[in-house]
Amino acid sequence: MSARKINLTVNGEAVEAEVEARLNLADFLRQAIGLTGTHVGCEHGVCGACTVIVDGRPARACLMLAVQADGAKVETVESLGTPESLSELQQAFRDRHALQCGFCTPGMLMTIEALLRVEGSPTREEIRDVLSGNLCRCTGYQAIVDAALDAAEARRGTR
């Protein structure tokens, strides 16, 4: 067994913790610091439910060890908006009915958030390509793509 002390930033706040080396980042977020917005579906990198943003890039939190996030800047779905004040992307999901059970939603949101930061005007095709890394068992994806397009427009201020 090997435990380590780590220091990282989660949603803008400094976090210090002692973690077992084999603990993955998703479990760390959920269990050690209580941020249960990040979901865990498959634990082997297939479903995308655990997607978070690490140092500006989207990453599968189930495929990263918490110790590897030492010194990193991690953003989770909790950073996007609040129930009273949804982010543009969350609002677009709501307006377009882009979620049903909601299990995949945090991963969908963080993936699209990461995309919109590098590509402000994605095409439908680009969005579909990026979402190939996130599984949804409910919606059929079309509404999610619509919501991503709406959010991109809203963020460009053209809507």
């Binding site: 495929l63 390509d129 890394g133």
Partner: peptide, 12 residues
């Protein structure tokens, strides 16, 4: 590279 894994896995 567009075929290598996904957007969310190519980051690492």
């Amino acid at each position: 590279l567009a075929h290598v894994g996904h957007f969310q896995t190519r980051s690492r």
